[in-house]
Amino acid sequence: MIQIISLDQILPGMVLGEEVMSGSNLLLPLGTVIQDAHIDSLRRCGVSEIVVLVPSEPSTAEINEQREVLRERVERLFRRASSNVTMQALRRAVLEYRLEKFK
């Protein structure tokens, strides 16, 4: 995913999602990892906005799918567990632990 941000918002470590041109001159190519020196030179060249890559968040569907995998794994470990209260509480605690860790 890409996002347009103003030069004020740029931070070292961000990755360019589009090349930066000044007229017909290429200032920085696509994929450049921004460093402090770049920010200074962009400012000197009067660039006001740049396009950066935004790491894509996993979709809700993907998250749900991964949670389902965790749930199935816990069910598998407990497939022979009796229905007694302690064992069922253990199963719940283990599932909670894994889901919290996954977050």
Binding site: F78, V85, T86, M87, A93, V94, Y97
Partner: peptide, 25 residues
């Protein structure tokens, strides 16, 4: 398979589920 956790042992140890999860971590 996770072995069957004994009620007696769990009660005697006196750990709560919150502490249990912390210990797992």
């Amino acid at each position: 398979l996770v072995p069957c956790l004994s009620d007696a042992a769990w009660d005697r140890l006196g750990i709560g589920w919150v502490e249990f999860k912390r210990l797992l971590g």
